[in-house]
Each structure stands twice: as structure tokens, then as C-alpha cells.
């Protein structure tokens, strides 16, 4: 193959290499800008990813939905439609295997398992990782545990922007203070 052809091919590959992260950014920015913000009650714990650093794993209060429909496969996509409760936190309105004709926002989550004994569908929300500065991740976990003990219950929540099934985790708050700032105090 001629050098110029090789080079043209490489330029194409380089463009794809640039396009993939750019596309990731674009989708997220679009959701952050135009999406609806929801607060999800959560509970953080802190592990490490070898390439992306420290993060806290978030477990959400809304991880189950009572339904009589028992035909669900683990890891199957599930459309989770949202509403807010009286305190402004996100609640599951309904779940579905396919998109519904409705204006309310939804998240595409994964099915964990269908619990036959309690007739509930256990789901896994996609925004389960919050990357943090490595010096703060452990403290964040401890801070949350303390906050949980000394004041009102469920004062930790994740702020998530949702638009057309895409969800972007913007920040995690403890007592309405961003977790990174809360830890610094």
C-alpha cells in the first residue's frame, strides 16, 4: 500500500479515535443542558478502577418495583419512567420492556432479577459510579456514614439529569452540599 493511502486511512482512524470521546461528551453535555434534574436517594461506598481512579459506587433507594409481570431476563434493558415525591426525590412511576407513548422522562436501566417471592422487579440504575479525587473518595464514604447517623435519615442524594433515556450523574450531595466540598470541611 502507498504511504499516502496508509496516511489517509490513519487520518480516518484518528478521526474515529477523536469522535468516540467527543460523542461521549456531546451526549452528556446535551443531557446536562436540556435534561430534567432528578434527585435520587443514595448510599456511597468507595472502590478503585485501575485506569480511571477512585470512585464511589452508589446504591439507590429505588432499586425495586412491585409488578405482577414475572417474565424478565437478568441484564435485560428496562425502561424506568420517573416521577417525583412530595420531598422532591425521584420515584419510579412505571416500568416497561419497550418505550411508552408518554411525555414523562425515563431511564434505560438493567434488570437484576425478578423476585418471585415478593413480586418485585429488582433493577440496576446505570449511573452507579461517581469518580472523585483520590484523596477524597474514602473520606466521602466515611462522611456519608456519619451524616447518616447524626441527622435526618436519607440526606444523601445524587443529582441526575435525564433526557430521552440518557442519564448523566452531575453530582452527589450530603445535606445539600456537594460531596467533594462536604469532605473538605
Amino acid at each position: 500500500m502507498k504511504t499516502i493511502h496508509l496516511f489517509i486511512l490513519f487520518v480516518l482512524v484518528a478521526l474515529i479515535q477523536l469522535f468516540v470521546p467527543a460523542q461521549m461528551i456531546f451526549n452528556q453535555e446535551n443531557t446536562l443542558e436540556k435534561g430534567t434534574a432528578y434527585k435520587f436517594r443514595t448510599e456511597p461506598i468507595d472502590p478503585t478502577d485501575p485506569f480511571r481512579g477512585k470512585y464511589i459506587t452508589l446504591r439507590y433507594d429505588i432499586n425495586a418495583y412491585p409488578t405482577k409481570d414475572s417474565i424478565w431476563e437478568p441484564q435485560q434493558d428496562v425502561f424506568v419512567y420517573l416521577k417525583t415525591d412530595s420531598l422532591g426525590f425521584a420515584k419510579i412511576d412505571q416500568v416497561s420492556k419497550a418505550p411508552l407513548e408518554t411525555t414523562s422522562e425515563y431511564i434505560i436501566a438493567k434488570v437484576n432479577v425478578y423476585d418471585k417471592y415478593q413480586d418485585v422487579l429488582r433493577i440496576h440504575l446505570p449511573f452507579d459510579r461517581f469518580y472523585m479525587k483520590e484523596t477524597k473518595a474514602k473520606d466521602a464514604e466515611i462522611a456519608h456514614r456519619k451524616a447518616q447517623r447524626d441527622s435526618l435519615p436519607n440526606n444523601t442524594y445524587a443529582l441526575v439529569f435525564v433526557k430521552d433515556g440518557t442519564s448523566v450523574l452531575e453530582n452527589v450531595f450530603i445535606n445539600d452540599i456537594p460531596i467533594a466540598d462536604y469532605v473538605e470541611k
Binding site: 468516540v20 461521549m24 452528556q28 480511571r52 459510579r129 469518580y131
Partner: peptide, 24 residues
């Protein structure tokens, strides 16, 4: 390339475990 997609996942707290990151 690894650093770039790693940083984007950090900035936007993208879901997805290590295996899907490595595959991309």
C-alpha cells in the same frame, strides 16, 4: 486513547464497568 476515554468517563461519571472500557 486509553487516557482520553478514561478522563471522559471520569468527567461525566459514565457508567460501565472496566471490561466495557477496555473493549472500547
Amino acid at each position: 486513547v486509553g487516557a482520553s476515554i478514561a478522563l471522559v468517563s471520569q468527567i461525566y461519571h459514565l457508567p460501565g464497568d472496566l471490561s466495557s472500557f477496555l473493549l472500547t
